[in-house]
Simulated assay, not measured.
Amino acid sequence: MARASNRLSRFNVTSLALGLAFLYLPIVILVIYSFNASRLVTVWGGWSLKWYSEFFNDGAMLDAASMSFRVAVTSATLATLLGTLAAVALSRGERFKGRTLFSGMLYAPLVMPEVITGLSLLLLFVAVNAERGFWTVTIAHTTLTMCFVAVVVQSRLGALDRSLEEAAMDLGCDPARAFLSVTLPLILPSIAAGWMLAFTLSLDDLVIASFTTGPGSATLPIRIYSEVRLGVKPEINAICTLIIALIAAVIVVASFASKLSREQGESAAPL
């Protein structure tokens, strides 16, 4: 039995190693070659930081990066506000009329192909004669990411003890004040995690942004895609490495915020 257990353990370790290599080896290679001194991405020419310098001197890339960050921050903020309100409505209003329809429409972007979402938003903006640019991309990304925020916040609201709000109202608070004073501090880490998730999804979106953007308002993923179509430059490796580092930092912070929210929810859950 022990020998079989050891063989199974080695098999599990090997499977895990192969899976991690399949997922992360291309990213590791990309990061290493971002420090390649050679202009040829397939030929190693020594260590260098010149491609990072090239990126910070590339006006078009910097404009696209600025556009992406402004869209990501704005859409994540709007998605967090709307998604939190939607989560509260679904968690605290179980019996309101049309709840099933509202829930289905809210979570539709989770399963809807991005091509369909992007095309439908494009047709909407054309129908209302909206000039495509910063705000159309922001609205599209808000539509995409709001459902993710709602899922995160609703899961935390479901773990809280509603008697805490009822106790606050028994002490003289109205429902709004009870929510702001009691519930909001408990779900704040999940709200922060939802914002970071929305920010990350907006930052790396390509499909929906390509449908809803206009001339002179290309996001960084669109700019990178247009450059890669003509051949991969070492500067692209440097840009992608910076994006990977940023998203990794956001994911780590979001994980800590989600863990804190879960611990607070468990401590506030009914015994």
Rank of each mutant, 00 (worst) to 15 (best):
M1P: 13
M1T: 01
N6K: 13
L8M: 13
L8H: 08
L8A: 14
S9W: 15
R10T: 04
N12P: 02
L18W: 04
Y24D: 12
L25Q: 14
A37R: 05
L40Y: 03
L40H: 08
V41G: 04
W51Q: 00
N57W: 10
D58A: 09
A60F: 15
L62Q: 13
A65V: 02
V73I: 13
T74A: 04
A86S: 14
A87K: 03
L90W: 01
R92M: 13
F96A: 11
G98L: 11
P109F: 02
P109Q: 04
L110H: 12
V111E: 06
V111C: 03
I116F: 06
T117H: 08
L123K: 05
F125Q: 04
V126Y: 08
V126M: 08
G133E: 07
W135P: 01
A140M: 12
H141C: 02
F148D: 00
V151E: 04
Q154S: 14
Q154K: 11
R162G: 08
L164Q: 05
M169I: 11
C173Q: 06
C173T: 09
D174W: 09
R177H: 06
F179A: 08
S181F: 08
V182Y: 03
T183L: 07
P189R: 02
I191A: 01
G194K: 07
G194H: 09
L197G: 02
S202M: 11
S210V: 03
L220T: 03
L220I: 14
P221R: 08
I222W: 00
I224D: 00
I224F: 02
Y225I: 14
S226W: 04
G231N: 07
G231C: 00
V232C: 07
E235C: 05
A238E: 04
C240S: 13
C240E: 06
T241H: 00
L242Y: 01
A248G: 12
V252H: 12
S255Y: 09
A257C: 14
A257L: 15
L260F: 07
L260M: 02
G265T: 05
